[in-house]
Each structure stands twice: as C-alpha cells, then as structure tokens.
C-alpha cells in the first residue's frame, strides 16, 4: 500500500488524528444531549412536585452515591494519567493506569450493584415501589433514578470494555500520540461528567 493511502481519505497522519478526535468530541456532544432528556425530565418533576421530589430522593443512599462520585473521579484521573504515560512513551505505565481506571470503573459498578440490591430489598424498585411512597410523584422519582443511573451504568460498562480493549492492544499502548487511549479516555471522562450532574440531581436533592 502506498504511503499516502494509509491515512486515506486524509493526506497525512496528523490530519487523520485531528479528525478522529474531533469526531469523538462531536459524538460526546450528542451523548450529552441524550442524557439531557433525563435531566429535563428530572427538572420538570422537581418544578412540578418539589416536596415529593425531595422526599423520594431522601430514600437514596447518599454515602454510596458520594463514594461512587469519588471513585469515578479517581478513575478519570487514572485514565488521564494513562494518556499522559502513553504520550511520554511509557507503555507499561499507561497499561497500569488504564487497568487502575478500569478496576475503579468496576468498583463503581459494584457499589451501584450494592445500592440497587439494597433498594430492591427495601422495595424501592419500579413495580414494587408503591407501598413505600406517598403518591405517584415519589414513585416516579424513583423510576427516573433507575432509568438515569441505569443508562449511565450502561455507559460505564461500555467505557470499561473500551478501556480493556485499549489496555490489551500493544499498538495502542505504544502509540506516542495516544490516539485510541486518548479517545477512550475522552469517552470515560464524559461518563464521569454525566455522573457529576446526576449526583446533585438525584442524591443531594434528598438531603434535609
């Protein structure tokens, strides 16, 4: 294959990298809008049923949510460090940092699982919920919580898989431009940013 064909349709590698990164950022913008629908629903519910919203949010496990915020932020740091390491030409350090980010991501899911299990036991899950709440608006908050965090958890899972892919690929680790690792890290940071807003929307709303 001729040299100029390698980056087709781009003329050179730098431009191809630029395009990849821009494509990723645009994709992330559309992800933001996807979660925007959930946040808009939470906003509407809060404006319509303020007291119910706060009362139902009080059922959430604030400390687990806070711990998860810390876990995810730290995981994001690890992902950023992995990019840093790959650029510095330290593939092993990059792999280790990615692994740490990935494990912290798993820890996040585990904590989330504990939370869900607790909520299931307490009968807060959709369908089992009516008995615990005063009125439908509170049940709705709980349902919205499950939809929002569930959709987020799906994104976390995808992020973990992507990071595993990047950590396993030798070419990705040795790429001094950190293209794959960089784009995976971007995705992971966005998953983090979404959580940063889910946290006050859901958990902090219930603190009296």
């Amino acid at each position: 294959m001729a040299e100029e064909e390698r980056f087709a349709p781009f003329a050179d590698a730098a431009r191809a990298r630029d395009a990849d990164r821009l494509g990723m950022l645009i994709f992330l913008a559309s992800e933001i809008m996807l979660f925007g629908g959930i946040f808009a629903a939470a906003l509407a519910l809060r404006l319509e049923h303020g007291p119910d919203y706060a009362a139902a949010a009080g059922h959430l496990k604030l400390w687990l949510g806070t711990a998860n915020t810390a876990i995810l932020l730290t995981s994001s740091l690890m992902a950023a460090l992995a990019v840093e390491a790959a650029r510095a030409g330290a593939p092993r350090r990059a792999a280790r940092a990615l692994l740490a980010a990935l494990l912290l991501g798993c820890a996040f899911l585990a904590v989330k699982g504990v939370e869900y299990a607790g909520e299931y036991r307490e009968g807060l899950m959709p369908g089992t919920a009516t008995a615990h709440f005063d009125g439908p608006a509170q049940t709705l908050f709980m349902n919205l919580y499950f939809v929002g965090t569930g959709l987020h958890a799906v994104h976390v899972t995808i992020g973990i898989l992507l990071m595993a892919m990047a950590a396993l690929s030798q070419r990705a680790r040795q790429d001094r431009n950190a293209m794959l690792i960089g784009n995976v890290a971007l995705y992971w940071h966005l998953v983090d940013v979404v959580w940063l807003f889910l946290y006050p929307t859901l958990y902090l709303a219930g603190v009296r």
Binding site: A29, L34, F35, G36, G37, N143, V147
Partner: peptide
C-alpha cells in the same frame, strides 16, 4: 448531532413507560 439524541431518549422513555410503567 444535537437534536436526534433527545428524540432517542424521549422515545426510549415512552417505550419504557409502555412496557414497565415508568410514568415520566
């Protein structure tokens, strides 16, 4: 890029409402 995801999540919520009664 910016409008389509909002439709996606909205329709998802409608489907969830129909299937499991989310209620948004």
């Amino acid at each position: 890029v910016l409008a389509t995801p909002v439709l996606a999540i909205t329709l998802l919520l409608v489907a969830a409402e129909r299937l499991i009664g989310i209620g948004v």
